[in-house]
């Protein structure tokens, strides 16, 4: 039986001024899978993610999330979609004026009516999951780069979102932390049946977690398929990446 896509992107075009960053991108992202978005620097990976989440307005094309077309959706309705999506930004994007625990509590306070005691328990568990149990009262400026990223992940999964989007989660992390993060992502997928979209270049990480690959090159989809298919493909750029772990 054919799976129904949780996110369906059709003929997406994204532009910065006159420059076209994504041209005619058509891809499906399936539920409870980990989809890795690959591509060299400047190929449009982050733009692709930010267009899906309407952080940038698409130039043309259609994007449907949870079966609903979102490109023309009004803000209030789209907010209800966003509350089911967690995003881990490349640099964490924690709010510096409040503590780590308060950062994690934002979505819980804004999108649920849970009592404080339950929110506090969730915060502690989520921070413990990312190995930051002792950092809850620290300010983001007191954290290292890797810790910031993990705290931001705790914030992204605070609401147990249906979709988790991670923009280069392993960048700047040591191999052990990176592997632990991969295990956590796999655990989240299994326990909370999350759909996870990850932008990463780490070949080891891709082998550990990816179910499906989307390979972008110069704003176009070069390959889309399972990890197994990606390893066997004869498309030169994809083949090279899986052989040497670098983009040509």
């Amino acid at each position: 039986m054919k799976k129904e896509a949780i996110i369906s992107v059709k003929n997406l075009v994204a532009k910065y001024g006159e420059a076209t960053v994504l041209s005619d991108v058509t891809v499906d992202i399936f539920p409870q899978e980990i989809t890795v978005i690959l591509g060299g620097s400047g190929c449009g990976k982050t733009t692709f993610i930010k267009n899906i989440l309407r952080l940038y307005q698409p130039y043309s094309g259609s994007i449907s999330i949870f079966g609903k077309e979102v490109t023309q959706m009004d803000e209030v309705e789209f907010d209800s979609i966003l509350s089911r999506i967690g995003m881990l930004f490349q640099n964490g994007a924690l709010l510096n004026s409040i503590s780590v625990a308060e950062n994690v509590s934002i979505p819980l306070e804004q999108h649920t009516d849970l009592p404080r005691t339950i929110i506090d328990k969730i915060i502690r568990v989520k921070l413990d999951l990312v190995n930051l149990g002792k950092a809850e009262n620290l300010s983001p400026s007191e954290l290292s780069g890797g810790m910031k990223k993990r705290a931001a992940l705790a914030r992204a999964i605070a609401l147990d979102p249906d979709i988790l989007v991670c923009d280069e989660p392993s960048a700047g992390l040591d191999p052990l932390t990176s592997a632990a993060l991969d295990n956590l992502i796999l655990k989240l997928k299994k326990l909370l049946k999350m759909t996870i979209i990850i932008v990463t270049h780490e070949l080891a990480s891709i082998h550990r977690i990816a179910d499906r690959i989307i390979f972008l090159d110069q704003g176009k989809v070069l390959f889309t398929g399972t990890l197994k298919e990606a390893k066997k493909t004869k498309i030169p750029e994809v083949e090279t990446f899986f052989r040497v772990g670098k983009f040509e």
């Binding site: 328990k121 502690r124 568990v125 413990d128 149990g133 809850e136 009262n137 299994k190 326990l191 909370l192």
Partner: peptide, 21 residues
């Protein structure tokens, strides 16, 4: 068993008690 795993992962009972400064 599946929910047991979720319970073990997300339970805060085993976490150390935080002492207030």
């Amino acid at each position: 068993s599946e929910l047991e795993q979720s319970y073990q992962t997300f339970s805060s009972l085993e976490l150390p008690i935080q002492l207030k400064a």
